[in-house]
Design a protein around this nucleic acid. Structure first.
Lengths: 154, 154
DNA sequence: CTTTTAATTGATATTGAGTATCAATAAGGA
DNA sequence: TCCTTATTGATACTCAATATCAATTAAAAG
């Protein structure tokens, strides 16, 4: 039984739910709630966060929907060094991520040089390159400001 | 009570156990067994693999020793996309990893261009860069050979 | 609109990785 | 050798994620 209240249940035509439909999956109330929430939040999130924010959707369904979105290439799975992986909406075809090591905010960037590095590495590497992953750890501007603010109060 | 048999218990002066001693940690039979095993194996490994291979050492101790080695910078923790992280001995100061997506073999490489890319990214990125991580997914030469072998048998 | 069929859901149980606890034990300096 | 403190490891626990499976729902067919 799906117990999603009417206001949450409203199905909005979005790219995430479309990504699921394109894979032959049904457009259900639960999936609409999950994809909508991801899109409205904007930020990166963990599976458990989503579960907490959507108590009306079962955990199993939240996890399944996330997996489908990752399989569809609509979400990126970011393995964090400690703890559960984070997910962020893939807005551009191929990109990398910045992660603020103070607040956890995730950003996206593209850089043509990275692709060029890959090609030049192909000679050095003992096999065929099939993919790569790169994360840059930063202290974001907001956190830098917060730190400066905190110091000025001493 | 430590129940490590005599042959496993032999304490060998190695860089890993030294890394622990340098941090003021005691040279114990259990830690010697763990570090020795890591060095003899050579390959990357998961914590659970180590536990299975060293049933005479308690799980808690295996996990604690790994954590100490990572803290000391003697081991690299590699977050794998699915499942438990892998660990590999850090042989050079700063480097990146290749991971064979077929057999899981982990290699190490350095590339000066990666550092140059970091510097050039500093302008584009919204904050201070404090670190980065990069993994290249490959099909290693052994796997390429195995695939070719398999195909020739059709 | 109703029927039909297969996909989907979600409460629950289960797995698996990793950590906390704490009494017993071992390391290593005095 | 003794003494103090770090270390160990059996156990219980937490947390993330998955498997199970009867009840429910989507949507295609009639």
């Amino acid at each position: 039984m799906c117990t999603i209240p009417a206001d949450t249940a409203q199905i909005i035509e979005t790219s995430l739910i479309t990504a699921l439909e394109d894979r032959g999956l049904r457009k259900t109330t639960a999936r609409a709630a999950v994809t909508q929430r991801i899109e409205l939040a904007g930020d990166a999130f963990t599976a458990e966060q989503l579960c907490r924010e959507l108590p009306e959707v079962g955990r199993a369904t939240v996890y399944r929907t996330i997996r489908h979105l990752v399989d569809a290439g609509a979400l990126c799975k970011l393995p964090i060094l400690d703890g559960a992986p984070m997910y962020s909406v893939a807005r551009v075809e191929h990109h990398h991520h910045t992660i603020c090591s103070r607040c956890g905010a995730v950003g996206e960037f593209r850089h043509s040089t990275v692709e060029r590095v890959m090609r030049s590495l192909e000679k050095e590497i003992d096999g065929d390159i099939v993919g790569h992953r790169m994360e840059i750890f930063i202290t974001c501007n907001q956190c830098l400001a917060a730190i400066a603010e905190g110091e000025s109060h001493d």
